[in-house]
Design a protein around this nucleic acid. Structure first.
Lengths: 182, 182
DNA sequence: TGTACATCAGTGAACGCGCGTTCACTGATGTAC
DNA sequence: TGTACATCAGTGAACGCGCGTTCACTGATGTAC
């Protein structure tokens, strides 16, 4: 039956939120539209009332995942960008984040798949990655020399997380996290 | 018709080599068995004479990709590990490597998918990642303090490559590569 | 404010395609004598 | 060394399942008067 506009908007939000999490946890090709809809509390048939295609949902889900992280980063770094970077790195390089694919860093969680994808999907990823870089380097970092340090830190965090996720042995994983935390 | 043992072994090598490249280029869920077999110069029906399943091929393809890189790293660092690391980093952080998914770093190219995979596949990835770390840190690096530097460098290289692949704008991509190259 | 009708969000069944896997078949290789 | 037979790598058609997408239907919401 028809729903109110508020209900419809809420449904759409639920779909995108569920997709954003499942996408990072399982990858675009191992999450089905039906699973996303179920996680959002609906059946799959109604999906196309909200999105033109699965790809369109992926674009929205990628954007949402980055939006969250960037908003958090920006609010943290409002006063003291350096402290915000340190805090973010500390919570980024933890065993909890290694295991928490679902809510984790969208760059580490989705680039593998999205880089190989077609137009709109890789554009959404590129926009998110650039926004993350800006939020991390700080919008005040006008010169390349000022951005280089934060870019290096961010690269090391992302690579360290990926390496820690790849190895299975917890003692090696912890060694990586310790090394990269500095 | 039946082939000689040498031909059979060569066929298997071709299949694994094709899979190792296609896997990095397109990801496990976007390469079909038929495509791999075609790239190896055969039709898909014969595949199961060589492998029990597509997953078994993925395991072999992951191992092969890492075997190549690790062999190269080890031969380079036989005399001067420090110089080998510097050289590897220089060729790693290039626009060419950003675009060359197919022959590129298997950690950057396959962790996204493999981390989410089942037993044998994630084990093959873990073994490869650990072997790469050892080859990069040098087998002589006995203490954690000695390994920390190389682990940090390797993390930064991997993260930088992934970040550079994620952004689309060539000028931002080059800025990332410059920053991480130091 | 109330009434009549059009709209459309959500349901559940069905369709169709791609792909992993199986199978009957072929004929050269390997092997037993 | 030669012969007869078993083996098995590779072919191409077929099977079956999962999943993205479509569709007829329902009934509450929104709207025109």
């Amino acid at each position: 039956m028809r729903r109110s506009k508020a209900d419809t908007a809420e449904s759409r939000r639920q779909i995108v939120a569920a997709a954003s999490r499942l996408l990072r946890q399982r990858g675009p090709d191992r999450v089905s539209v039906a699973e996303v809809m179920q996680a959002a509390g609906m059946t799959h048939g109604g999906f196309y009332k909200h999105f033109e295609s699965k790809d369109a949902l992926l674009v929205a889900a990628i954007a949402e995942a980055f939006r969250e992280k960037v908003a958090f980063l920006k609010s943290e770094s409002a006063q003291d960008p350096d402290a915000a970077r340190r805090n973010y790195a500390q919570s980024y390089l933890t065993p909890e984040h290694v295991d928490d694919l679902m809510n984790g860093c969208p760059i580490a969680g989705m680039t593998g798949d999205a880089v190989r994808s077609s137009g709109p999907i890789s554009e959404a990823l590129a926009a998110g990655a650039q926004a993350t870089m800006e939020a991390f380097a700080g919008s005040d970092a006008a010169t390349e020399a000022m951005r280089a340090g934060p870019i290096r830190s961010l690269s090391m965090m992302i690579g360290g997380l990926i390496l820690a996720r790849a190895v299975v042995d917890p003692s090696i994983r912890d060694e990586i996290l310790r090394a990269v935390r500095q």
